[in-house]
Design a protein around this nucleic acid. Sequence first.
DNA 1: TATAACATGTAACAAGTTACATGATTTC
DNA 2: GAAATCATGTAACTTGTTACATGTTATA
Lengths: 171, 171
Amino acid sequence: MERKLLLLGLLRRQKMHGYQLHEFIDRYLSTCVDLKKSTAYYLLDKMAAEGLISESEAQVGNRPPRRVYSLTEVGERHFQALLRQNLAGYWPAYFAGDLGLAFLDHMEADEAMALLQERRRLLVQALARAESAPQHPGSMQYVVAHQKAHLLAELRWLDEVLAELAGPGKS
Amino acid sequence: MERKLLLLGLLRRQKMHGYQLHEFIDRYLSTCVDLKKSTAYYLLDKMAAEGLISESEAQVGNRPPRRVYSLTEVGERHFQALLRQNLAGYWPAYFAGDLGLAFLDHMEADEAMALLQERRRLLVQALARAESAPQHPGSMQYVVAHQKAHLLAELRWLDEVLAELAGPGKS
DNA sequence: TATAACATGTAACAAGTTACATGATTTC
DNA sequence: GAAATCATGTAACTTGTTACATGTTATA
């Protein structure tokens, strides 16, 4: 699971507590990952139980004590393995929007175009968000850059479909 | 959920039983959807309980009776709503491969390149599969076409990354 | 006659989300 | 003093997968 790779990788740079990890991901990687707070705690618990990370408590004022995690040696080896496995693998992306396109011939071209124009608007919005997202230095930039490349390809593709709907065979 | 849209859309064309639906999806849409048999049965059960589809038994020989489903009127309305919602929406794709890239600076460029070359090989393989996949006429072609467009964009992107790793600033 | 394809079903599990609950501290 | 942010936690739920079990019929 890639989320494990992510958490392990972040903890490899420095020990962090759950809230902090969630915050970091939300800030720098939200274009790519949507990790809920509960899920972060859930995964950290599990990985601590598996011995991949170790926790230590840190009190600040009267707040709930922070549970600060750091990589164990087992965790480090696990990270190395996961990273290599991830880089050497290809996982097909899942496009939820494709299934609508599959049934495009169940409706009039005019309505389809109007609906897809709305999709286009959201796409452009997403692109703008990606452009203006804060960047973390280093190879984490690849994540945002890839997202941008993908969104641009998606936009071109969508415009092709729209053109075809507008005038089938008109070109 | 898009899988519901898919099943409803297929049942809209003609009544089918679970096995048949799974087979169709596997044949024509495997580039885009991986719907397990159990999951198909599971969803059909649920949608039947919700009144979106109705079932009738059909016996052929001594085999387990086929449970043939067809769209109800409620199901038809649901399909129309789901389709419009899908076409007008944009759902960011999730790229499992990004998280490896995020930690590229945790390893030597040489090893990273070797690993990414393996990823590239798998990508090219996936592209070949998409090229040679059987096509269903009509707008279902969009699904495969989109997949191909995406795979090509992915290949270009990967080659850019590889070039950058090969000679940072060499261009 | 063995194997693949046909056809369904289910119990147990895994992953993750939702919605809630708690309470301290900072900021306006 | 109200609202946002900090910080965690958990029980119930949803979604879907895995791994099995069952038996029939066509094909090599």
